Computed example of a mutant assay.
Amino acid sequence: DSSPEAAATLVHAWLAAGDGKNARLALASALAARSGEPERVRVQACLADARLSYYSGDRARGCRSLVHALRLAEREQLRLPFVLEQGWIGPVLRRDPELASIHRRLFPSAPRHDQPQGGSGLPPEATVLVVEPPTERELEVLRHVSGMLNTAEIASEMCISINTVKAHLKSSYRKLAASHRGEAVRRARQLNLI
C-alpha cells in the first residue's frame, strides 16, 4: 500500500526501529498527503518530520513541523497522536512553554509557567512505545475492562458479540505491547488514552 496513511505508519515503524534514514525516505510520501487525506494522517506525518528533525539537530525545521501538526490537530482536537509521541514532545514543550500554552487544549497536562516542572512520575522502563494507536472501539472496551466488567458484560454494554470484544482486546494487547487485560489498561492509562 502506497497511501499516505500506510507511509505514516511505516515512518513510525522505522522510527521505533531506530532507523532514521529509512524513516526519512518513507516520510517523503507521507508528507505529500493532500488535503483530501484525513487530518490524523497529516498530523502523524508532520509529527514524524518534527521528531526526525529534532533528533538530527535541525530544531528550526522540527519546530515548524511541530507547529504545523499542532495547527492541523487544533481544528479537530486530535490529541491521541500527541499522547503517543509524548516521549519526545514533552521535553520540547518544556523548553518552549509558550508553544505549549498556545495549544494547551491539546495538552491538558502541559507544563505552565507557574507549575514546577517534573517528570511524568513513571520510571523509564514504564515508557510505552506505540506504533499504531488503538481505535476508539478498542479504547471503549479498555474503559469497560478498567471498570471491572467481564467479556460478556462488555459485549452487552456495547451491543456487540463476545467474539468482537475478544478481537478488540487482542488488538489492544498487540498495539500496547501487553499480555493481559490489566497490563493493557495500565499502559492505556500511562498514555492518558483512558
Rank of each mutant, 00 (worst) to 15 (best):
A30H: 09
L25Y: 10
A32N: 12
P108L: 05
S146F: 00
E74F: 11
Y54K: 08
E37R: 03
F82C: 09
P108M: 05
S3D: 06
G147N: 14
P91A: 01
L169V: 08
S179K: 11
E138Y: 02
S179Q: 12
A33P: 05
P123N: 07
G57E: 09
L142D: 04
K175T: 09
Y173F: 15
E74S: 15
P91D: 03
G57P: 11
V141D: 08
E136P: 02
A8V: 01
R61Y: 00
L139E: 10
K21W: 08
E140Q: 15
L176S: 10
V43I: 14
E132G: 01
Y55F: 07
I89R: 02
L80K: 15
R104V: 05
E39I: 11
G36P: 00
A73N: 04
S35F: 04
R104E: 14
V92Y: 07
A126L: 06
S2Q: 05
A69W: 02
L169M: 15
G36F: 05
N192E: 14
L142F: 09
H144R: 09
R181I: 03
A50R: 01
E74G: 05
S120A: 13
E153T: 08
H113I: 04
R105G: 11
E74N: 13
A155V: 09
G20I: 01
D1T: 14
W88T: 08
Q44C: 08
A26I: 00
G118C: 08
E85I: 01
P134V: 15
S120M: 08
K166M: 12
M158G: 10
L80H: 10
H144W: 06
R95T: 04
D96E: 13
G18T: 02
P134K: 06
R34H: 10
L47G: 03
L84M: 12
Q190F: 12
S53V: 12
L129Y: 02
S35C: 01
S35I: 07
V83I: 00
H168Y: 11
A73H: 02
G119L: 11
C63K: 13
S172P: 02
A8H: 05
N22Q: 13
E39H: 09
L70P: 06
E153P: 03
H68F: 03
R105W: 09
L15G: 01
E140K: 14
W88I: 06
R94L: 09
G18C: 05
S109V: 00
R187E: 03
I160R: 12
L193D: 12
E76R: 14
G121A: 10
E5G: 13
E125H: 04
L72W: 03
D58M: 00
L10D: 11
D19Q: 01
G62R: 04
V128T: 15
H113K: 02
R34E: 15
T127C: 10
D114R: 00
A126V: 00
L10V: 06
D114C: 00
